[in-house]
Design a protein around this nucleic acid. Structure first.
Length: 402
DNA sequence: TCCCACAGGAGACACATCAG
DNA sequence: CTGATGTGTCTCCTGTGGGA
């Protein structure tokens, strides 16, 4: 799986250059942009790593590691592929013998087209989590594995060993890629550049149709991606023509034909099928209705909040008024109470004073009566009305007292 | 703790190519 | 012819790991 090269948990021993070589090994012919999208590296990092790989080689061997194909300058983005040394290094990383794979320049468009499918998937999905991608070689191995049967060889029964029965070479299919998307499903990818014609194309459909009956494999949906609308229509014609050769009750596995770019949504499960579309539309309808109901509820709540706020404001102002009144009443009451208390104290004081006055008056009256009697006895002419004693009498009384 | 080697990332510069 | 764009090469800086 291509992302294993990038998983630092699964492949902790790999250097950055190893990872790049590994990804390029799986992608075949690719561009820096594709590498950047698929690896999740920025353009500079991809560029630097490619350069580092080339720099470390002897000048004459640089293209043997990574070779640049195509125009430089404004003419378009260059394409890259591993050279012989790069491929050897990749096989060594995989622990496999040196294979015979050599990138063919004639396959540039085909290789780039397949890689673009993966790039679009990652870009539309946002990341590569939950995406699995196997290149042509691994996808073919997957098919080959399911077509391989084992049977007991009677001559070797005593050993208990079974022998492999190789599938016939003719009729094998070799998908361009095998892709799995978590939660959606798995897909065989066939990228069509528009160069395959006639019976060769129809044969390819037949091979796919017959594959499930030849194996016990759970057939992934086959996705055909082609270059334009016209070619997609042509593929559909060939597809239906090929189907017409089979009995009515023949069980075909799912197969979809897209113009490049349209397959991404399908692979991400957005338009899985009509039923799902209906479900989505129903959900959409329900969601709209729910949204409207919630909108109404929101309006009601907002009105309620406004009303509560108004009430609160009113009661606050009332409360303020009441508090004001209450405070003034309290002040009045306190004032009145103070006055009352002062009055009461004054009354008590007056009572005390009166009592004292009475006592004094009584005392004085008693004293006066004695004084009057003395006065009368001394002076028959003394009267109370006159008040003060005449000074001669005062003098005489003083002399008598002494 | 220091020194050294190496990997990786980024930038500068020269050059190639093509559209306008 | 010129400007825009992309590539190849070189250099510098930083971080990391191993050994003295």
């Amino acid at each position: 799986m291509i992302f294993t090269w990038l998983d630092e948990k699964e492949t902790p021993a790999l250097s950055q250059t190893d990872r790049l070589i590994g990804v390029m090994f799986d992608l075949g012919i690719t561009t820096k942009t594709q590498l950047s999208v698929i690896m999740g590296w920025n353009a500079t990092r991809v560029r630097s790593t490619i350069n580092n790989i080339r720099q470390k080689a002897k000048p004459k061997d640089r293209d043997e590691w990574i070779q640049a194909v195509g125009a430089t300058g404004r003419g378009g983005e260059a394409t890259y592929s591993l050279g012989a040394l790069g491929l050897t290094h990749a096989y060594a990383l995989l622990g496999e013998d040196k294979g015979s794979r050599v990138p063919v320049s004639g396959q540039i468009a085909h290789s780039l087209g397949i890689n673009e499918i993966l790039c679009r998937l990652i870009q539309q999905k946002g990341d590569r989590k939950g995406v699995q991608w196997f290149g042509t070689k691994q996808a073919s191995q997957y098919v080959y594995h399911h077509m391989t049967k084992r049977k007991f060889d009677e001559k070797r029964l005593h050993t208990g060993y079974s022998v492999k029965v190789q599938p016939p070479k003719k009729g094998r299919i070799s998908p361009d890629a095998l892709c799995g998307v978590n939660g959606v499903g798995s897909f065989f990818i066939e990228f069509d550049t528009g160069t395959k014609h006639g019976t060769k194309l129809e044969d390819q459909f037949h091979r796919y149709f017959q594959l499930p009956s030849e194996t016990n494999m759970k057939m992934p949906t086959t996705i055909w991606v082609t270059v334009d609308e016209k070619r997609a229509k042509r593929l559909q014609e060939v597809y239906w023509n090929a189907r017409s050769d089979y009995p009515k009750d023949y069980k075909f596995h799912e197969m979809q034909i897209f113009v490049a770019g349209a397959e991404t949504s399908y692979m991400l499960g957005d338009h899985k099928d009509g039923l799902k579309l209906d479900l989505v539309l129903n959900e959409y309808d329900l969601a709209i209705r729910k949204a409207k109901r919630l909108e109404k509820e929101l309006e009601d709540k907002q009105w309620e909040i406004k009303k509560l706020k108004d009430d609160l404001r009113d009661s606050q102002s009332e409360s303020n008024q009441w508090e004001g009144r209450h405070e003034s009443e309290e002040r009045e009451r306190k004032k009145w109470f103070d006055q009352y208390s002062r009055q009461l104290r004054r009354v008590k004081d007056m009572e005390k004073w009166l009592k004292k006055v009475e006592e004094r008056v009584e005392k004085k009256q008693n004293g006066n009566m004695l004084e009057k009697a003395q006065m009368k006895a001394v002076n028959p002419f003394w009267t109370e009305a006159k008040g003060e004693l005449p000074h001669w009498m005062k003098k005489m009384l003083e002399e008598q007292n002494h």
